[in-house]
């Protein structure tokens, strides 16, 4: 049996014919297995959705109660039989509830990793290495220049800046689902005990994280705060809000952005950021290549991002490698901005 007989890449996502389902489809399908709650992977309108409880909760918070015809929560490690295949969900370490999906059929193991990172994150279960024959990887940061280094060091940089510019607000752009809560949790781990303020758009998700017993300390809404109160405070907002009229309420803000893209100076400058923080929820180059090697896979499919370099690397290691041209995956923020534009 060939891998292509189990999973077929289609323009709307990867399809498992023997199991009768799609993984992270970008168009409505009969049955969808969803890796995580980011809007470019988790869309509304499918017949049936299988995902972790957290991912289902996040989809409900974002799309309302009727986001799918039916839902089924699957625990990490639980094996689900679907037609002629079995599927299981394993921690991906990307955001709360994120999973890699392992599909097995006639002894051939394929892992669709979704988005993942193999470094510690206090807000989600640690990435689990799942041995397989075919590994489907993302390549958001698939260039050797993306080395994310130590996220705690970046938090230290932010705190030193807060200490130095006490009369200014520090505005930190961060994706609403995952990054925002991770940044807050890391600030707490570094000993920052002041109230942290958030933009209204991330309130629901943040409260949800807190309800899952993730300790974020005192989190306040910007909406209720006056200007003087925001001096010396850390404020987390969606990246698009930095350049928005919304940001004018702050006293001479220091503009920070927590993202793997901040590794490259031109990207940070283009954003008008004065304090770039290299904190990523995606694996960096070393993470991607180490994971691919460790899975033991002899074949690698690359879904989205900077595929060229990763494909070249795989082939140099004598791994069979192919790009999957799936339309619609990318930055969480781009997807959000697009949704905004369409609305």
């Amino acid at each position: 049996m060939r891998p292509e007989d189990i999973l077929v890449p289609t323009p709307s996502g990867v399809c498992c014919k023997p199991g009768g389902f799609h993984i992270d489809p970008t168009r409505p399908v009969e049955k969808a297995l969803i890796t995580h709650g980011h809007s470019d992977h988790a869309r509304a309108g499918h017949g049936a959705v299988l995902a972790t409880q957290e991912t289902l909760d996040i989809m409900r918070l974002r799309y309302g109660d009727n986001f799918a015809g039916s839902i089924q929560a699957v625990r990490y490690g639980e094996i689900v039989k679907l037609g002629g295949a079995t599927a299981s969900f394993h921690p991906a370490g990307h955001v709360l509830g994120s999973a890699q999906i392992r599909v097995e059929c006639n002894g051939l193991r394929v892992v669709a990793s979704g988005d993942y990172k193999n470094v510690a994150d206090p807000t989600c279960t640690q990435f689990e290495l799942v041995p397989c024959d075919v590994f489907i990887t993302e390549a958001t940061f698939g260039l050797p220049v993306f080395r994310h280094h130590d996220a705690a060091g970046e938090i230290g940089k932010l705190l030193r800046s807060v200490e130095l510019f006490l009369e200014r607000a520090h505005l930190v752009g961060a994706y609403s689902l995952g990054k925002a809560q991770r940044v807050i949790a890391m600030l707490r781990a570094a000993g920052h005990d002041q109230p942290i303020y958030i933009h209204g758009a991330m309130e629901t998700i943040t409260r949800y994280y807190q309800s899952r017993t993730i300790d974020l300390g005192r989190v306040e809404l910007v909406r209720g705060a006056n200007k003087a109160e925001l001096c010396g405070r850390i404020v987390i907002c969606p990246p698009s809000a930095i350049s928005d009229l919304w940001s004018r309420r702050f006293p001479d803000p220091v503009v920070a952005f927590a993202s793997g893209w901040m590794r490259v100076r031109a990207r940070a400058r283009q954003r008008g950021v004065t304090l770039p923080l290299v904190i990523s929820d995606h694996a960096d180059w070393d993470g991607l290549t180490a994971t691919i090697t460790a899975t033991g896979a002899s074949e690698v499919w690359v879904t989205h991002g900077q595929e060229d370099a990763l494909l070249h690397w795989c082939r140099a290691k004598s791994l069979k490698a192919r790009p999957l041209d799936i339309v619609g995956y990318g930055d969480e923020e781009d997807a959000a901005a697009q949704a905004e534009a369409e609305a």
Partner: peptide, 27 residues
């Protein structure tokens, strides 16, 4: 220290020699 194809893709993306080398430098 690096694969020439990977260096050229990286340099092309970053656009600055010192920065590319600083980021790619293998541990």
């Amino acid at each position: 220290r690096t694969d020439p194809a990977l260096f050229s893709l990286s340099y092309d993306y970053v656009g600055d020699l010192s920065e590319t080398v600083a980021l790619m430098w293998p541990l």
